[in-house]
Simulated scan of single mutants.
Amino acid sequence: MRTIVDDFTRRFAAGSVSRWSAVLLAAAALAGLAACDAAKTAPSPAAGAALPVQVRVVQEQQLPITLEAVGQAEGSKQVEVRARVTGLIERQRYQEGEPVRAGAVLYQIERAPFEIALQQARAQLAQQQAQLDQARREYERLRPLAEAQAISRREADNAQSSLQLAQAAVALAQAQVRQAELNLSYTTVTAPISGISGRSLKSEGALVNPSTDSLLTTVTQTDPIWVRFALSEAELARVRAAGGTQVRLLSDRGESLLEQGRLNFAGSTVDPSLGTVPLRAEFANPRLRVLPGQFVKVQVVAGQARGFLVPQSAVMQNEQGRMVWVVREGQAQPAPIQTAGWLGSDWVVTSGLKASDQVIVEHLMKLRPGAPVAPQPAEPQPAAAPAAAAAASTQ
């Protein structure tokens, strides 16, 4: 570099280089000299320097085997409330979205037309009853005469037929009275079950028709509440092998939402597109902490096993399966592992590690097998301990 500068100086003195070119070349030369000097003075990195990494020392312990899935809540009963007679809604007797008891009045449909129909049916019944009494008297009067052969057989048969027709007419009139009474009772629309009332689909003054436009509202039973979810074939086999299965609902922060539930349905077929089996769990929900339609995290406890807790961020996936990096003799080494679900924010590792192994939890993408590392204790993560204690308390 200095030879180039000396040559440029001679050429400039001889007048073969312009003034501006001289300035630019001089600046470039000075920058090159500075870079060379810096390269000479900068310390070169030590070959094979250990990479500082944070590690977690794992210990084997008795851990619950948990399976997690996303589920959707639904009411254990959901009933559509429909109008069963044609008429105008005179009054809505409930507050939308409020709890209602079975038998509570929800709507009142106009009664007058059905009261009139009931009166007509009762009058018809009275008329038919009078005709029956007349037919019976006529029959009783003619029967002794027929036995004494004082009248023709035809007259006796006619009297008996008239009595039977009158009896049938009374039975028909009685049925019409019962139908009129039933229609009148339908003008008072009541809740078929206890639960949470839905939005009213008809307002006061609206005309309802049971054949075309009958839906008024819905009532959903939310205590107990059901949660639908699915597990893979292997997970379901593990659940069945565990015997008594415990189910919990967790919030986004891992907190328990409801008391421990139970499985009340397991599908008998596998979804061919997803490879999963549908399941359903039942939970007590007296305070309405979970609403129908809400998505929740379902945790199924399927027995216990000896294992290690490893942060999720330390577990990697490759072609052979899951693995972690561990420190052995001051070097990073990959360790294939077998997992058995999550516990809080950690994986439960059942094989591939041994007690007091140092699992690397950072700089995973920079590691290579045999690379020297300088392990440093990772910051404690208190979330895993409460999760383990909470899961253990359900055993």
Rank of each mutant, 00 (worst) to 15 (best):
A31N: 04
S16H: 08
D346Y: 15
A112R: 10
V81A: 05
L165H: 05
I196P: 04
A69G: 08
A22E: 02
V327M: 03
Q331L: 14
Q338I: 00
Q120M: 02
V298M: 03
R141G: 09
G32M: 12
I65Q: 14
N158K: 12
A314Y: 14
L163M: 12
V301M: 14
W342S: 13
N285K: 11
V270G: 01
V208Y: 08
G103R: 13
A302I: 10
A387L: 02
S185A: 13
V58Q: 11
A135C: 10
E147I: 06
A241R: 11
Q108H: 07
G244I: 06
L88Q: 07
T218E: 10
G195D: 03
A305R: 15
A135G: 05
E155C: 00
L367F: 06
L145F: 07
P224F: 13
L231F: 15
E90F: 03
V53E: 00
Q176F: 14
P210S: 04
S203V: 01
A156I: 01
L106E: 04
A104H: 04
A13Q: 12
A50H: 07
Q312M: 12
A241Y: 13
S185C: 06
A123I: 05
V227W: 13
A302S: 13
G330I: 06
G32I: 09
Q95L: 04
D346N: 15
A175Q: 14
T218P: 00
G341D: 09
L367R: 11
S185Q: 12
Q160V: 00
A335K: 15
A148E: 11
Y94C: 00
E90N: 08
A35T: 11
D357V: 05
A117L: 05
L163P: 02
R240V: 10
A130S: 15
S21N: 01
G303T: 04
F229H: 07
L231I: 08
R136C: 02
Q304D: 08
A156D: 02
G32D: 02
S161L: 11
V17T: 01
L125R: 15
W325P: 11
E204H: 04
A150I: 00
I116C: 00
F308E: 15
R143F: 09
E255K: 14
Q120I: 03
K77C: 01
T350S: 13
T212L: 06
D346W: 13
